[in-house]
Amino acid sequence: MRRGVLLSLLLHIALVFVLWVNLPAFLIPEEKITYINVTLVSSPDAAKTTKKQEIKPVKTQQSNAPREAPKPKKEQVQTPDHGTKVVSTQQSSKKTQVKKQEAKKQQKQEKKVSEIRPPKLDKTPDKKPTPVSKKEPPKEKTEDDFLKALSFIDDLKNKKEALEEGEETDTKIFDVDQQDIAVLKRHIEKNWFRPPGIKGLNDMSVAVLVSVNRDGSILKMELTHSSGQPFFDNSLLRAVRKSVPLPIPADKYDMFKTIELRFNG
């Protein structure tokens, strides 16, 4: 009973979460999928291109044997085409899960073998340790799987980042993104001369879409939402132009290729 309830509860939560998170991305055909693939897959693509450019300097500076080893894995990952990649990641993760589970089974068998001895001494203490040992390992396993699934992504990113930075968890990467955004925000705000005490500032809103070149210069800038006050719009456009080169981390160019700057008073 409990299992059934737990299972259905889990599935329900999963369903709600998936809906909330916009899973229909799977159902919606090309646009979103291609979009998705760009970001997920672009990192290996970027890695490819950067590799071609960077391999030489990297080799001259440092040559690390362990880093070269993961390359075959990447190639396996890269071989599937854009459309199928999402699936492939899942498959591969499933594979890894299967492998892990097999490994777990082996471990369990070993444990069972090792556990055969204590029950002979006492039954009561045995019961307690066994459930604990059962409960704890699955948690570790899920975390392992989680990390492995992520390490998959990490591998892609690490490849892209070449040899500069070692191991990073996904959460760290997220933090860095926030930091990058904060740096960019501060940089532009510093250059934005906006007269103080404007009447109705709290009702003003502006949005600018900026396409950025790799060197931080502006490829294209478009006022997507005007405040209705030319002086105010222009002050922001001036601020963006004055902010060139925009402080965009070179290794995350794809992420910062287009930036939307908004002000909502």
Binding site: I259, E260, R262
Partner: peptide, 10 residues
């Protein structure tokens, strides 16, 4: 999309 909400100004 990278979206930056500006608040302060110089």
């Amino acid at each position: 999309l990278v979206r930056i909400d500006l608040t302060d100004a110089n």
